[in-house]
Simulated scan of single mutants.
Amino acid sequence: MAADHTPRRISAGPYRHISAPIASAHHVQELQMPSVSDRPVKRSIRRNELREIVPLADSTIYEMEQRGEFPRRFALSPRCVVWDLAEVEAWLESRRAKPIPRANHPDVTRRKFRPVKGHGRNSA
C-alpha cells in the first residue's frame, strides 16, 4: 500500500473535525530522538518507580534537573518520560557519600503572628 500524504479528517465530536496528516515511513524517521548518552541504557524507570526510590516532590526533581543536580529524564514517546535507573542509583550514592547540610531553622521568636511562648516569658 502506497503512503498517502493527504490530510484525513478525524472526528473530535459531532460538530468538530480536525485535519491530521497520515504518517508515512519517511515521517517516522524524522521523529526519532537523538541519543542522550553514549552508553546504552540497561533499565529505565517511570515516574512512579522514581517516586519509590527518591522521596522528593515532582517539582523538586524538575528544578534539580534544570540546575543539572539530578539525572535528566528522556522521552520514550511524546507522552512517556523515563529515567535511567543506573544514573538515579549513582546520584543516590553520590548524595550518600557527600551529605547535604541541613537548612537553618527560622527564628520563631521574631514572628509577628502566632508568637511563641518561650522559657522565661510571661504566659497570657
Results as ranks from 00 to 15, higher is better:
A25K: 02
P55W: 09
K42C: 10
Y62W: 09
A57K: 15
I45C: 10
R43E: 06
R43N: 04
S37V: 01
Y62I: 11
A25C: 04
V28G: 10
A25G: 05
S35C: 15
Q29W: 06
R47K: 09
Q29H: 07
S35L: 15
M64Q: 07
M64S: 13
T60W: 01
I53P: 10
R47E: 12
M33E: 06
M33L: 13
D38R: 03
N48P: 04
I61Q: 09
E30G: 03
I45L: 09
S35I: 13
I45D: 06
I61L: 08
E65S: 14
S35N: 15
L56K: 08
Y62D: 07
T60R: 15
V54R: 06
T60P: 04
V41D: 00
R47C: 09
D38V: 04
S59W: 11
D38S: 08
E63D: 08
Q32K: 03
H26D: 11
M64I: 13
E30A: 04
S59T: 08
I53D: 06
I61S: 13
E63K: 11
A57N: 15
R43W: 01
R51N: 10
T60E: 02
L50W: 00
S44K: 02
A25Y: 14
E65R: 14
S35E: 15
S37K: 08
N48L: 14
I53N: 12
H27Q: 15
L50Q: 10
L31K: 14
R51F: 10
S24R: 08
S24C: 07
K42R: 02
Y62P: 04
D38L: 05
K42D: 02
R43H: 03
L50D: 02
E63P: 11
V41Q: 00
E49Q: 14
Q29M: 01
A23F: 14
R46A: 03
H27K: 10
L31Q: 14
P40N: 02
E49M: 11
V28M: 05
S44M: 02
M64P: 09
E49G: 02
R39I: 00
P55S: 15
